[in-house]
Design a protein around this nucleic acid. Structure first.
Length: 574
DNA sequence: GCCGTTTTCGGCCCGACTGTTTTCAGTCG
């Protein structure tokens, strides 16, 4: 079961969507969206708040607070039920189809009785949309492809794939005649865990040559749209890439606008409006005189609004604007802060490179220490034994000193059993420098059992880090069902660190969990979980997640110098 | 429906592109 905040947020979001589809007041709809976001991201459990505390959440007033209380008390909200009653239940999912918004969804429902994506697909195939106002042949074609796309991909790509595409595209744009600079914006720049489409920006006086270079990219399979300064292409895999070409002197305003999030940008524009200014991708203007006040740099635009520059990873309207105003933005952890990695594999188990090779690449990354943590025997397919791991320890000791000043640490990745036990007895575990413990099986246990096993693993005095705590895999496996707040509290109590696994298909913990765990006072380990030397660089995505969770270096044990890390490993506390 | 260091009422964020339009609504970011 979801936590109350998520349930309430989902309900408010549904209500906002229903208001949009049925054409109700757009401002009311926006108010519900804002409240949903605020409640979803609120650190305290809404089911434990009184009316006053509820209304203290920004965007929650009397009416919404009443509905939240009604929901928590009765499990339903009359107003939402009524709105649901106005539409067949499947209509809302129609708006997930690219190119299909609330207005067209309503038309389809009212005029043709279409109430689901499947209905829509059938109607399109059978030509039943003919004669419907606003649904000409081009629209029908686009909707067909939209349905196809929605079904094929679920819509989003992993961060590493998006990063690779963006880097290649940016290099090509920068090489175009007249292009002064180019950069990714959007959710990629904010380091969201997946990317729905790619936003690129370029600065040039003449847009034409830059757009030509964009259209000529090898992965630009199809041009979806092309205007004076904006265009969009689709990759063979179905990913949409948007390009916007800006005048060079509007670079900062454009970057801010297209980096988003939409919610953050909207609040910044609102802030500007309140000061008699108007913000667009072309700059910050005096609303009366039209004179431009700032545009060249992001920092300049923020400064003009009385704010310091806000890092893109924080721009989600999760309190960053308020923190910026108070001068309390965190000093975010960066990749340069990392001094080591506590979760890596070698060819002794399922890694692809020997210990010496992994360590050599770790040295190149400038690490001060480096832990090798191959799988323990309960993961049967790895065929691990005491003898094999002790032999690895000898090998590691023999290599100690071969990698400049970098210190090698010997560890293992234990398996958390269904009851919370781990592979080896305590006296054997005591021989390791570091133990990571992770769930690799029994994903289907109920919430109480999952919570119990994780807490037991935390309480094991030999366990230093809980690896990929929710075990989700993006696009293929959901998270286990556990009371994470109870687990976070146990980690804080026992001094066990939670991993932020940087593998792009894990990113586990995810940003929202990091924010919540942080409120409990938990320590974190940003790790690569590398199975090849190249994957050691996956920490960049883990760092992105850590930053989105507002973490500072002090909270991340993998940024600590060796002596401090050793104290943590010895005492497992602070 | 929310909100207030000019406001407790009257505001509430901005622009590009597409398609089906003879002047603009819908969608998206």
């Amino acid at each position: 079961m979801a936590r109350p905040n998520d349930e309430v947020a989902a309900l408010l979001r549904e209500y906002a969507d229903l208001l949009a589809i049925t054409g109700k007041d757009a401002f009311k709809q926006r108010a519900y969206e804002r409240a949903a976001r605020a409640i979803g991201g609120h650190p305290a459990d809404v089911s434990r708040l009184d009316a006053g505390e509820l209304r203290a959440i920004p965007g929650v007033g009397r009416s919404i607070a009443d509905k939240v209380e009604e929901y928590l008390r009765t499990g339903r909200v009359a107003a939402v039920e009524a709105a649901r009653g106005e539409l067949p239940p499947g209509v809302r999912e129609l708006t997930a189809v690219p190119g299909l918004g609330p207005k067209k969804a309503l038309t389809l429902c009212r005029e043709r009785g279409i109430a689901s994506v499947d209905d829509l697909a059938a109607a399109l195939r059978e030509g039943r949309l003919a004669g419907l106002r606003g649904f000409g042949p081009r629209t029908v074609e686009n909707l067909l492809r939209g349905v196809e796309l929605l079904r094929a991909s679920g819509g989003r790509v992993l961060l590493d794939a998006a990063t690779a595409l963006a880097e290649e595209a940016v290099a090509a744009l920068e090489a175009a005649p007249g292009c002064e600079r180019a950069a990714p914006a959007g959710s990629l720049r904010r380091m969201r865990e997946t990317v729905g489409d790619l936003d690129l920006l370029a600065a040039a006086r003449e847009a034409g040559p830059v757009m030509d270079a964009f259209a000529a990219l090898p992965f630009a399979a199809e041009v979806i749209a092309r205007g004076e300064t904006a265009m969009a292409v689709r990759t063979p895999g179905g990913l949409r890439i948007d390009l916007r070409v800006l005048p060079p002197d509007a670079w900062g305003a454009g970057l801010l606008h297209f980096t988003g999030s939409r919610e953050h940008a909207a609040r910044i524009r609102e802030l500007a409006a309140r000061r008699g200014l108007r913000l667009s991708e072309y700059g910050l203007f005096d609303a009366e005189t039209g004179r431009r006040r700032a545009a060249r740099t992001e920092a300049g635009v923020y400064r003009r609004l009385g704010l310091p520059w806000i890092p893109p990873v924080l721009r989600e309207d999760r309190g960053e604007i308020e923190a910026a105003r108070r001068g309390e933005l965190p000093r975010l952890v960066t990749e340069e802060d990392l001094r080591g990695d506590l979760h890596t594999h070698t060819s002794l188990t399922d890694g692809l490179a020997p210990l010496s090779e992994m360590a050599a690449v770790a040295t190149e990354r400038g690490y001060e220490w480096f832990a090798v943590t191959d799988h323990a025997p309960d993961l049967r397919m790895q065929r691990m034994t005491k003898e094999k791991i002790l032999a690895q320890r000898e090998e590691l000791r023999a290599l100690q000193g071969s990698f400049g000043g970098m210190r090698l640490l010997h560890g293992t990745e234990l398996n958390i059993g269904p009851e919370g036990g781990v592979d080896w007895p305590g006296d054997f575990l005591a021989g390791f420098d570091v133990c990571v413990a992770s769930i690799h099986s029994h994903f289907g246990l109920d919430r109480a059992a999952q919570t119990r096993r994780l807490i037991r693993a935390c309480e094991n005095p030999h366990v230093h880090v809980i690896g990929h705590p929710t075990t989700r895999k993006l696009g293929s496996r959901g998270p286990i069902d556990a009371d994470l707040d109870a687990v976070f509290a146990a980690c804080a109590r026992t001094g066990t660190a939670l991993e932020i696994n940087g593998h792009p298909n894990r990113l586990d913990l995810r940003d929202e969990h990091v924010l919540r765990a942080r409120a409990h006072g938990v320590l974190f380990a940003v790790d690569s979980d590398a199975h090849t030397p190249g994957e050691l660089a996956h920490t960049r995505y883990g760092i992105g997640t850590a930053q989105r969770g507002w973490l500072t270096p002090a909270e991340v044990v993998t940024t600590w110098p060796l002596d401090r890390l050793r104290r943590f490993l010895a005492e497992r506390g602070r």
